[in-house]
Simulated scan of single mutants.
Amino acid sequence: MAARSLNISRRSPDALITALMLPVMLMLIFVYFFGGAIDTGTAYVTYVVPGAMLLCAGFGAASTAVSVADDMRCGIIDRFRALDIGGIPILAGHVTASVLRNLVSTTLVLAVALAIGFRPQAGPLALLAAAGLLTAYITAISWLAAALGLAAKSPEAAGGFTFLMMFLPYPSSAFVPIHTMPTWLHGFAEHQPLTPVIESLRALLLDRDPGTTPWVALAWCAGITLAALALTALLFRRRTA
């Protein structure tokens, strides 16, 4: 199932290139267009990279929702069920392919960031912890995207549902410090799921003490994954009943 999903992506090079290049372009826009006007206490490229990687994951998850919705519309699910393939393996294939695609795209974002001046200072263990946290986040939003794809009535609607996932990095600490935002936005920006993930990645990559923030981030990732799994199972039974 994962190989099938990857083959589908390979047959849509325009969508794949967009998913790979758009986060890179956005990072370059923020660094070179706005970075000089934003005071973060460090080089802006150093500040923005964790948020750019999560933004990249959001774009990648959008394609997962669209693929699931397309499978539900075209009738391939009925053929798989006739072969005694359950819903979870089918959707797990989409999620596995999403994780692999997103890891490639975030690696590309990191490579471009290194080329324009980003210099991580983390040791091997911190880099491994950052990679593990990023993978946990990508897995969580991929399962959430699969659930949204099941809930959508069409691939176009699935793409619209994932707008929220791509929007969430903006009202967080991804691109500007939270204290520079309007006061009424502070509470949401500080306590939404992406902020602890971003702050943890930033601390781990720059060899700073993250405190308990990574555990908060992992708790968010686990909660989103479990909720998405339960919702996925429920929606699949309803859509295929």
Rank of each mutant, 00 (worst) to 15 (best):
R79M: 06
R79I: 08
R79Q: 11
R79V: 13
R79K: 04
R81A: 14
A82G: 10
L83K: 03
L83Q: 12
L83T: 01
L83M: 13
I85Y: 07
I85N: 05
I88D: 09
I88P: 00
L91Y: 06
A92I: 00
H94M: 00
H94T: 03
V95G: 10
V95E: 12
T96R: 10
T96V: 12
A97C: 05
A97S: 15
A97Q: 12
S98W: 02
R101I: 05
N102F: 05
V104S: 04
S105C: 06
T106W: 07
T106R: 09
T107V: 06
T107R: 00
L108A: 15
L108I: 10
L108P: 02
V109P: 12
L110V: 13
L110C: 08
A111R: 06
A113Q: 10
L114K: 09
A115T: 12
I116Y: 07
I116F: 12
I116S: 06
F118E: 08
R119W: 04
P120W: 00
Q121E: 10
Q121Y: 00
P124L: 13
P124N: 00
P124F: 02
A126T: 01
A126M: 09
L128E: 03
A129Q: 15
A131N: 10
G132I: 14
G132S: 15
L133K: 13
L133Y: 14
A136M: 14
A136W: 03
A136Q: 11
I138R: 14
I138S: 11
A140S: 15
L144D: 07
L144I: 08
A146P: 08
A146H: 07
A147T: 07
L148D: 04
L148R: 03
G149P: 00
A151R: 13
A151I: 01
A152M: 01
A152R: 04
A152D: 04
K153F: 08
K153W: 07
E156Q: 15
A158N: 07
G160I: 08
M165C: 04
M165D: 03
M165Q: 13
M166P: 01
F167Q: 11
L168G: 03
P171F: 12
S173Y: 01
F175A: 10
F175D: 05
P177N: 09
P177V: 02
H179V: 14
H179G: 05
T180V: 15
